[in-house]
Amino acid sequence: MASLRVVDRVVDGLRAAGPEQTAVARELFWLGAYAGEVFVRRAGAEWVDLDPGHQKLFGQLVGVRMPDGRAWNPIGKVANRFAAGPEESVQQMYFLLHGRLAVPALAGR
Rank of each mutant, 00 (worst) to 15 (best):
A25Y: 15
V40L: 09
R9E: 15
H54W: 08
V103I: 09
F29W: 13
F29K: 05
L14N: 00
A102N: 10
L97Q: 07
Y34E: 06
V90M: 11
A84S: 08
R109N: 04
V48R: 14
A25P: 15
V7R: 01
A33M: 08
G53E: 06
R65Y: 06
V78M: 13
A83H: 15
A79T: 00
Q55A: 10
R70Q: 11
A16W: 02
A107T: 01
M66C: 08
R100E: 09
V24S: 15
V90N: 04
P74M: 10
V90R: 04
G69M: 14
V24I: 07
G99Q: 09
K77G: 04
G63E: 06
V103L: 11
V40P: 07
L101W: 09
V40Q: 08
A107H: 10
L57A: 02
R26G: 11
D12I: 01
P104G: 03
A17I: 04
A16E: 01
A105I: 03
P74D: 03
L106K: 11
M93A: 15
N73S: 08
W72N: 11
V90L: 12
L4P: 10
L61F: 10
W30F: 14
P67M: 06
L57V: 02
R41M: 14
A84Q: 13
Q55D: 04
V90G: 03
V48K: 06
R5C: 09
Y34H: 14
A43K: 13
G76W: 02
R65Q: 14
V38G: 12
Q60E: 00
P86D: 12
V38C: 15
M1T: 05
L14I: 00
F95D: 04
G63V: 09
R109W: 05
Q92M: 09
E37H: 15
V7K: 03
R41E: 12
R42E: 15
A84T: 03
D12A: 01
G18C: 10
K56E: 04
D51F: 08
F39S: 03
A84K: 05
W47M: 03
V62A: 12
F82A: 00
V62R: 13
A102K: 14
R109Y: 04
L50M: 12
L61V: 05
R9C: 08
S3D: 13
G44Q: 01
E20I: 03
A2R: 05
A71Y: 04
R65K: 07
W30Q: 05
D49Y: 03
V11I: 12
V103F: 08
G59K: 00
I75F: 02
V64D: 11
L14A: 01
L50H: 02
L28G: 02
L101H: 02
Q60F: 02
L101P: 04
Q91P: 02
H54E: 07
A2T: 09
A84Y: 14
H98C: 13
G85C: 09
V62D: 09
E46R: 01
D51W: 08
R81Q: 12
P86G: 14
A84F: 11
P104T: 00
P86A: 15
V11A: 07
F95S: 00
A43M: 11
L57D: 00
L96V: 07
F39C: 04
A45V: 08
G76F: 02
A71D: 12
D8W: 02
R15D: 00
N80C: 07
R100Q: 11
E88R: 12
V11G: 07
W30I: 11
